[in-house]
Amino acid sequence: MATVHRETLIDAEPADVWAAIRDWGAVHRRLAPGFVVATEVEGDVRVVTFADGTVVHELIVSLDDDTRRIAYTLVGGSLAPTHHHASMQVLPEADGRSRFVWTTDVQPAGCAEPIAAMVDQGVRVIRANLSDEAGRKGRVSARGPGA
């Protein structure tokens, strides 16, 4: 098994970042537009289509508003790991910024490299999108987007 763990700072309020993550069926509009091109919800499963044509079916494992954490697992689609469990969490930082944490456990370990590449791209898009949105609301700090 391998773990892909990424953290980044986002120049946006934790409540705003969490609202975008929590909006389970709007990833393509609110969280990662362009990286994700379509999201459909079928019960507790969402079908996510990425810009490169990859399609995954994700089952919600946990959605916790108090800790601003969502956990999900792959249950189908064009990726074929034997095990996949991921979580996203938003933590408060100074000056109204947010720490975004995305952790994915995957098996076999050979699946980690392509998943890490997707996560890295997703983190860049999420950070830019949510920081830009906060900027439009007039809340970005003078430091610019978090890294």
Rank of each mutant, 00 (worst) to 15 (best):
A2P: 10
A2E: 12
A2F: 12
T3V: 14
V4G: 08
H5M: 12
E7I: 13
E7L: 11
L9Y: 10
D11M: 05
A12D: 11
E13D: 15
A15D: 15
A15F: 11
A15M: 02
V17E: 07
A19F: 05
A19W: 14
A19N: 15
A20E: 03
I21P: 10
I21Q: 12
D23M: 10
W24L: 12
W24G: 05
W24E: 04
A26R: 15
H28D: 15
H28L: 05
R29V: 13
R29K: 06
R29A: 13
R29E: 15
R29C: 00
P33S: 03
G34E: 04
G34P: 01
F35C: 00
V36Y: 05
V37C: 06
V37L: 00
A38M: 01
A38S: 11
E40V: 14
V41P: 06
V41Y: 07
D44W: 00
V45N: 00
R46S: 04
V48N: 09
T49F: 02
A51T: 09
D52S: 13
G53R: 14
G53E: 06
T54A: 05
V55Y: 01
L59V: 07
V61K: 03
V61F: 02
V61D: 13
S62R: 14
S62L: 14
L63W: 09
L63R: 13
D65G: 03
T67H: 10
R68E: 09
I70M: 14
I70C: 09
A71R: 15
A71D: 12
L74W: 02
L74C: 03
V75C: 01
S78M: 03
L79P: 04
L79K: 08
A80E: 01
H83P: 00
H84S: 06
H85T: 03
A86I: 03
S87G: 04
S87K: 13
L91E: 14
P92A: 12
P92M: 13
E93P: 08
E93T: 07
A94W: 06
A94S: 12
D95F: 15
D95K: 10
G96S: 15
R97E: 14
R97H: 11
S98A: 09
S98R: 12
R99K: 14
V101E: 08
V101D: 04
W102S: 05
W102G: 02
T103A: 09
T104N: 10
T104P: 00
V106G: 05
P108N: 09
C111V: 01
C111W: 02
C111E: 13
A112E: 10
I115T: 06
I115P: 02
I115M: 04
I115L: 13
A116D: 07
A117K: 04
A117W: 00
M118N: 04
V119K: 07
V119Q: 10
V119E: 05
V119S: 02
D120E: 15
Q121E: 11
V123R: 03
I126G: 02
I126Y: 11
R127G: 00
A128L: 04
A128C: 04
N129K: 00
L130V: 06
L130R: 07
L130A: 09
L130Q: 07
L130S: 07
S131N: 06
E133I: 00
E133G: 14
G135Q: 10
K137V: 08
R139A: 09
R139S: 08
A142R: 09
R143K: 12
G144C: 12
P145N: 07
P145L: 11
G146Y: 04
